[in-house]
């Protein structure tokens, strides 16, 4: 799975990736620096993901960071990055990822992912 995201993660100042199922379960995460708390400890992700209902992609701009959210066949992909990362490049990389993500299947419980043969 990590290979899939190599191009994005190798971009300067991209800090991490999370992939959520549409039910809001965190199925994959990779952060380049440790977080003060594990995201799965928070129970509001489900609500957060459901609030994205109908959103194809989103840019969230904060004072110190920005997030790019992309709807995929299997859920929502969230890229965490610094404010100076060119989002257009991240978007492009995510578009290129989509066919590969189609081949991934999330287990019914949403806790693990498999590659379709």
């Amino acid at each position: 799975m990590k290979k899939l995201f190599n191009d994005i993660l190798s971009m300067e100042d991209v800090n991490g990736i999370m992939l959520f199922s549409f039910k809001g379960e965190l199925v994959y995460k990779l952060f380049l620096s440790p977080l003060p708390e594990e995201p799965e400890n928070k129970d509001w992700w489900g609500l957060f993901i459901r609030s994205l209902n109908g959103v194809r992609e989103a840019d969230l701009i904060f004072e110190k960071s920005k997030f790019y959210i992309k709807k995929t066949e299997i859920g929502y992909l969230i890229i965490l990055m610094g404010i100076f990362v060119p989002t257009a490049m991240v978007r492009l990389n995510c578009d290129m990822l989509l066919p590969a993500l189609k081949k991934i299947k999330i287990s019914k419980k949403g806790k693990s992912i498999f590659k379709k043969k």
Binding site: L35, K42, F48, D59, F62, E63, S65, F67
Partner: peptide, 27 residues
């Protein structure tokens, strides 16, 4: 407001600072 609150909460979790704007593409 509810949606903005959800986004701000996520930003706070990552220590992202104040929310400046959200761009939404809804097809």
């Amino acid at each position: 407001d509810g949606f903005m609150a959800q986004i701000s909460r996520m930003g706070a979790f990552f220590g992202a600072g104040k929310l400046k704007l959200i761009y939404l593409d809804r097809s």
